[in-house]
Design a protein around this nucleic acid. Structure first.
Length: 119
DNA sequence: TCCTTGACTCAGA
DNA sequence: CTCTGAGCCAAGG
């Protein structure tokens, strides 16, 4: 669901997708990390941006093009943000196929698979 | 019209 | 390390 949208929703989504497409296979990034890679809209406090940006990223992921590796985007806890369902299974499977490993808690070790984390 | 529920993150226990 | 609650906005039942 889209909470208060950014000044230019379409522009923001495009920006998010552009960044997500830069994530190499076998690595994952968090909503917050992606959000911080995007400069806050002018006139907006950093605090507010940090509060909203993750959701904007989530909203962008909710309607991303097919050429966007949305499966490589997870939450800050290293877990798939989707509820356990079809989307959840698909995402986990896609990541496993890329070499990303999940632990018993179904979490990804961001220290190892985190984008720009172990390079 | 009121209440629930989101592709989120952080701090505290 | 895991679990809670708060912050913040809008749409749908």
């Amino acid at each position: 669901m889209r909470f208060s949208s950014p000044p230019n929703p379409k522009e923001y989504q495009t920006l998010v997708w552009k960044i997500v497409r830069q994530i190499p296979a076998g690595k994952v990034a968090t909503y917050g990390q992606i959000a911080r890679l995007i400069p806050p809209p002018m006139g907006m406090d950093g605090k507010d941006y940090l509060v909203w940006s993750p959701r904007w990223v989530g909203g962008a992921m909710a309607s991303c093009p097919e050429d966007v590796p949305w499966q490589r985007v997870i939450n800050a806890q290293g877990k798939i943000s989707l509820k356990k369902g079809e989307g959840y299974s698909i995402q986990r499977e896609l990541l496993e196929l890329e070499g990303v490993q999940f632990d018993d808690k179904e979490r990804v070790n961001l220290k190892i698979f985190g984008w720009q984390g172990s390079d």
